[in-house]
Design a binder for these strands. Structure first.
Lengths: 260, 260
DNA sequence: CGCCACTTTGAATTAGCTCAAATTCCGTGG
DNA sequence: CCACGGAATTTGAGCTAATTCAAAGTGGCG
């Protein structure tokens, strides 16, 4: 199909990754990520002593079109970033958790290009961009951290695009849950149970499908015992085994009739 | 639907943008962008005197999994970035033109996460990341340019996601052409005629649809006189009026029966 | 000239959407 | 504490946009 010649080295690397993830080895990876998040936050407090701002569900930290001069670092809670098109279309383009930065999109244009909306109680650190740049000159490590954060965001956005473009609806929902759980695990939070802070409509918007399709996909995942709804309400989702979500995604991709 | 309360300021800003683009005012914006690209490239030569590398269609400048230590700046030609999933899925996630940087995705992981494939003869400047950082300390303006480039990439990736999630197939193809034409215009290149350096399959992969759907969409655009196929071959597409593409997109969105 | 990859177009199929109705959840006020 | 009402969710049924499968058609290039 796409004929990209690839080095053997790369292929081998990816095969290894796939294998590692099929075993339980990504636990180690999660722990490393968790330590990295903590270290980065520590560096930021030490070097910048940023002002702390508490947010509640629904709060908008910045909105599309606002003049940019500040970056934010999320230290607890979770955020959605909502893109706004000139014609009024709205699109959830990203979800953010502890340790993530908010506002990178504003640097180039001098104005933010999305809304940052808190989905939960939490807090963010307020970091003026010019202050940050100043600090970077005194402490190069800060610059490394900043660039790594931007780079990770670029990589993550592309993974989102890939999910939307290459996965059928059911798999997309499974992948969404897997990513959410992994995000929690990589921050040292419990990931066997997640509380979706979004309605089906929001999830659907983020994943490029309707709310009904999201609901059906979740029902199917529950029927297949890949997830479990907590006793009360359907916003709490138990994920007994994250690996099962990956397997489910793969099963959606391979046209193997599972004969049942 | 998504209930994001928005400031009046932001709404007004966006309305103004929409209006400006409906008139011919984005010509000015293109010129400004074009000057910015040229200025940035000049700064890079002056400060870094980077090694120049000529590439030809099909050349892979870096591949997913390769160790990261170098960024590239494209000065002519065009590139596609192809993401590779562990399970083998491939996805064109980004297109790059003169002035764009390649390789940001590698900073965080220490390895690139996509293939950078030349789609045309062109050349790139080779910039070692550590060298660049060093230069940034001597010349803060370089850092500004670097961050702006990363920020723009984040914004662009989100726009892609929004297109895929919110537009029907025909509109997505129109938007794709519009963006390509705009990218050329913003680099001072002629944009009334573009030579697609991608097969229908690649375009479809990038836009999340099949090659047949791409072909049908292009045929429809030609039937509606929004585009024109150059006499020979169907890779050269004349765009008599870029605005017509935007209008086409909007028409796809509004369920207005165009009565014909 | 003739092959091969790419493209177009048609026809049948289907994944996901729309519309509709029933159900559950949860905050509010009696 | 319970009743009530609105919002969110689930589920079904029919429909449609886009896919799949298939068959020509076209162009570039050795």
């Amino acid at each position: 199909m796409l004929e990209t010649i690839r080095t053997d080295a790369a292929r081998t690397q990816f095969a290894a990754d796939a294998l590692a993830s099929l075993r339980g080895e990504d636990r180690l990876e999660d722990d490393r990520a968790s330590r990295r998040v903590a270290d980065n936050l520590r560096l930021l407090t030490e070097r910048l002593a940023p002002r702390r701002r508490v947010v509640h569900a629904g709060d908008i930290v910045f909105a599309a079109g606002d003049r940019f001069d500040t970056l934010y670092v999320l230290t607890s809670g979770c955020f959605k970033l909502v893109n706004l098109a000139a014609d009024g279309r709205e699109q959830v383009v990203s979800l953010k958790f502890r340790g993530d930065w908010l506002g990178f999109d504003g640097i180039a244009r001098g104005a933010y290009s999305c809304d940052a909306v808190a989905m939960d109680t939490g807090d963010v650190w307020v970091i003026r961009y010019d202050t940050l740049l100043g600090a970077c000159f005194r402490c190069p490590e800060l610059l490394t951290v900043l660039h790594a954060a931007m780079s990770r965001e670029i990589g993550r956005d592309r993974d989102s695009l890939m999910s939307v473009c290459t996965l059928p609806a059911d798999a997309r929902v499974a992948e969404f849950l897997r990513h959410w759980a992994q995000s929690l695990a990589q921050r040292g939070l419990r990931s066997d149970q997640i509380t979706l802070r979004m309605t089906r409509a929001e999830i659907g918007n983020y994943l490029g499908m309707t709310l009904e399709t999201v609901s059906r996909a979740l029902s199917k995942l529950a029927r297949d015992k890949v997830i479990d709804f907590a006793e009360k309400g359907r916003r709490d989702i138990r994920i007994p085994n994250v690996q099962a979500l990956s397997t489910f995604v793969q099963r959606c991709l391979s046209p193997v009739p599972t004969l049942q």
